[in-house]
Simulated scan of single mutants.
Amino acid sequence: MVASDEVPTMGVDRYWRCYVSPGFVDRTPVAELAAVWVHEVAHLLRDHHGRAELLPPADRRDRHRVNVAQDCEINDDLIADGLPLPAGRMEPRLFGLPEGQLFEAYLPALPPSPVTHDCGSGAHGQPSDWESGDRAGPAGVGAVEAEALRRHTAEAMRAHARARGALPGGWKRWADEVLEPTVDWRRALAGAVRDAAAWASGAIDYTYRRPSRRSAALRGIVLPSLRRPLPRVAVVIDTSGSMGETEIAAALGEVTGVLREVGVRGNRVTVLACDADVQAVSRVTATGQITLGGGGGTDMRVGIAAALAGPERPSVVVVLTDGLTPWPDETPSCRLVAALVGPSAPAPPPWIETVRVT
């Protein structure tokens, strides 16, 4: 707990510190104060800041709208549990939306920044002015301890439900997901590709092809300007006999959608169909332009090597495969993401970023 005159009511940071306004405590009935505290803790238990980081950039920038969507996810469960939240609370019904959904489902239906709403980086993921940062203030909670707290709380909720009756729907779904997790492979794949593309586009370098505007102030001297290259992406598709067309189409559709979202399109995306050899190479803007071929053995090393040997070397390589393939012996000079089709696909080497497509 951190007492702060800067926070309007209560808020949490991503390190599980709860900032509380002493004035808000003085003027708020104890029952409402407890309900607000449970609300803020719910942001942390449901990992809202981690989930917010997987949103498209335009949504992440609208932190207030994200926060409202998150409050809608939480508050319908707290109200169902009889907690007396203060007036002005955000609920799905205020926006004509159904109860019991996740904030990612509410977000597209909300108007841009409907209110100025800020529960802190423990909710929307972006530091607020009243937060003390990662080093200042009392020690925060680390990632491992946070997961242990979530699991302990989920187990306590299940025990309570067995002894005294059902939980509100949102809390039951959350507890089930913590104790028996199912990974949303689409979100994980989107996050991995987006992170890799952001890493590649961050490789800023100097170039003399467009001299710096500061050169005009220095007679006889030409200064370089900074260049932030857009990432080139290669998608290597396993077209061996063990891969089904349905799985290939589903995974490939997600990859191309993510690439469009992060601004990688046109001739910056190359798709290589590969079994034991590269069968087809396409530059695409949509999945319908992809040429597939193969059906024989499997060796994704050939596809990766062909992608890196091309005239325009990619900075990100995504491999869609069932995992029944040898892998390179060492890390290539690019980001490599393996999208493994099927829950039983064998894992690649640990240095490869891996997402399981189910």
Rank of each mutant, 00 (worst) to 15 (best):
E6F: 09
V7D: 00
T9K: 04
W16M: 02
V20D: 04
V30P: 08
L33T: 07
A34N: 10
V38G: 07
V38H: 15
E40W: 08
V41N: 12
R51Y: 06
A58I: 05
A58R: 10
R63K: 08
H64F: 12
R65P: 01
R65F: 03
V66C: 07
A69W: 02
D71Q: 10
N75G: 03
D76A: 03
E91Q: 12
E91A: 10
F95Y: 13
E99S: 09
Q101T: 07
L107H: 01
L110G: 03
S113T: 15
P114C: 06
C119Q: 06
S121N: 06
H124S: 05
Q126W: 13
S128D: 11
E131L: 09
A148M: 10
H152D: 15
A154I: 01
M157H: 09
R158P: 01
R158G: 01
A163E: 11
G169M: 09
G170H: 03
G170P: 04
R173T: 11
D176E: 15
E177A: 14
L179A: 10
E180Q: 13
P181T: 08
V183I: 13
R186V: 06
A188P: 00
L189W: 04
L189A: 08
S201V: 05
G202N: 13
S212G: 12
R213M: 06
R213G: 05
S215M: 02
A216Y: 12
I221L: 15
I221Y: 14
V222R: 12
S242N: 07
M243G: 02
E245D: 15
T246N: 10
I248F: 01
G253Y: 03
G253Q: 05
V255Q: 02
N267D: 15
R268M: 11
T270P: 00
D275H: 11
D277F: 09
Q279I: 01
A280N: 09
S282P: 04
V284K: 09
A286N: 13
L292A: 05
L292N: 06
G293N: 06
G294W: 00
R301F: 08
R301L: 10
I304A: 00
P311I: 08
P314Y: 04
L324A: 15
T331I: 11
P332A: 11
P332M: 10
V337E: 02
A338N: 03
A338M: 07
V341G: 00
V341R: 03
P343L: 11
P350Q: 07
W351T: 14
T354G: 03
R356I: 00
T358R: 14
